[in-house]
């Protein structure tokens, strides 16, 4: 029983660490985009895949990133945050795959140092975070405490 408790504590710790890493990632990416917003908006406009969505993407992406990072502040909302992170990273990865296949001359609409990565490096980067989100989701499900079942009536019955 003590060994099981120890493993649950470790899993909780890992989920917490993964949550903090996603806070850092999304806040960094969002704030970097907002600090150089004009450049980000121009870069979004240059992408033939998303330029029609224009300002919606330019404002929407940082807002969504910050919103997801806020979910990780609350332990009850962490699993939702992990699922949201998984879906957001999936969308970003899908966009990169489309860019790699159809248009490799588009500058990266990224924030901060992530913009210095090549498209392929960025895809690997995104897949890494996607797997991290999956790991967090898996560990979150495994760390759910079993419901307390009162076995006393059963035991009393057996003793009789």
């Amino acid at each position: 029983m003590m060994a099981l408790k120890f493993r649950t504590t470790e899993k909780n710790l890992m989920v917490e660490i993964i949550s903090y890493l996603f806070i850092v990632l999304f806040v960094y990416a969002a704030v970097s985009k907002l600090l150089d917003f004009e450049q980000f908006r121009v870069q979004v406009g240059q992408s033939p895949l998303i330029n029609t969505l224009g300002d919606y993407v330019a404002w929407g992406v940082p807002v969504v990133e910050i919103s997801i990072s806020l979910l990780f502040f609350f332990s009850k909302l962490r699993l939702i945050g992990l699922w949201a992170s998984f879906f957001l990273m999936s969308i970003f990865s899908a966009y990169i795959i489309l860019v790699l296949n159809f248009a490799d001359a588009i500058p990266c609409s990224c924030g901060g140092v992530i913009a210095s990565l090549s498209w392929k490096e960025h895809l690997v980067f995104n897949i890494g975070w996607l797997l991290l989100a999956l790991l967090g989701i898996f560990l979150s499900h495994k760390t759910k405490e079993p419901k307390n079942i009162d076995t006393r009536p059963f035991l009393i019955q057996k003793m009789k």
Binding site: Y20, V24, L25, V27, Y28, V31, S32, L35, F73, G112
Partner: peptide, 18 residues
């Protein structure tokens, strides 16, 4: 800790601003 993570990320954004 989440607030510290956020502050760290915001600080990193400013330092990497080109």
């Amino acid at each position: 800790l989440p607030v510290l993570a956020m502050i760290f990320a915001i600080g990193m954004s400013f330092t990497s601003l080109d």
